[in-house]
Amino acid sequence: MNERELQQLTEDISEQFFGKAFRHQAVFNDRLKTTGGRYLLGTHHIELNRRYLEEHGRDELIGIIKHELCHYHLHLEGKGYQHRDRDFRELLQQVGAPRFCTPLKTVQKKKRAVTLHYYVCTGCGRHYTRKRRFDTTRYVCGICHGKLKKEGEKA
């Protein structure tokens, strides 16, 4: 599906389910990672995630378009357009739009390797473990105010 077909589909859904015209742009945004789409308040455009079409099919994309059109039409009418608003939830039910989209299977969180830094107090021998490295000349032990050194280094 290309951008022109997406625009036409969005306009058709708007007319069919909402009885109102969609006068702005609907485009694919390939930078969207975890969300199916978003409605932009400033420009009134709708951006959609192409991967939902590829992974879940046309029906899921239509559901996402309906959801974003709920935000669109309610915002333009000056009604409650946010997820927590009653107007929004009622309109979702009327048009049969999902409140949340199905998660993508291809999106996996990459675990970053955490490097731990170990410090020891030269006064009381207390051990400190930190995720971030810090300058030992600027900080002292919180218990005895002794000097800190990185474990494995000589004093």
Rank of each mutant, 00 (worst) to 15 (best):
R50Y: 05
T137S: 15
R50D: 06
Y139M: 04
L53A: 10
E68H: 04
G57Q: 10
T106W: 15
R89H: 01
T122Q: 14
N49P: 07
K109G: 06
T115F: 03
L74R: 05
T102F: 04
T122R: 14
T129Y: 05
G37H: 12
L74S: 06
E90L: 07
D85Q: 09
C124N: 14
R126P: 03
K131W: 02
R126G: 04
E77V: 00
E54H: 07
H67M: 02
E68S: 04
L116K: 12
R130E: 08
R112D: 02
T129Q: 15
C141T: 09
Y52I: 01
R51D: 13
H145C: 05
Y72R: 09
H44D: 08
H71R: 09
H56A: 06
R38K: 08
H145F: 04
L40W: 02
G142Q: 04
V114H: 04
A97P: 14
C141S: 12
R138E: 13
L41H: 12
Y119N: 11
T106Q: 15
Q82E: 14
R51Q: 13
G37Q: 10
G78S: 03
Y119G: 12
Y119L: 08
P98F: 00
I46T: 08
P98S: 04
K79M: 04
E77Y: 01
G78A: 01
L69S: 14
E90H: 05
D87I: 01
I65F: 01
E54W: 01
R130Y: 03
Y81C: 13
L91I: 00
C144H: 07
T137Q: 13
D87P: 03
L41I: 13
Y39V: 05
H56R: 09
G78Q: 01
R50H: 09
G142P: 05
R86G: 00
Y81P: 07
I143E: 10
T122E: 14
T106Y: 14
T35H: 11
G63Y: 05
Y81I: 01
V140M: 07
Y118V: 06
R84G: 10
R58S: 13
G125A: 07
Q93C: 11
L69G: 15
Q108R: 15
D135R: 14
D87S: 12
Y139Q: 09
C144P: 05
I143K: 12
Y39R: 06
G37M: 09
Q94M: 12
I143L: 07
A97H: 13
H145G: 02
D85S: 14
F100R: 10
K111L: 02
Y139S: 09
T102Y: 05
K109T: 05
T137Y: 11
L69Y: 13
E60W: 08
G42K: 15
C144S: 06
H71M: 06
G142D: 03
F134G: 03
V107L: 12
K109D: 07
G36D: 11
H127Y: 06
T35D: 11
G142W: 02
T122A: 13
L116T: 09
Y128M: 09
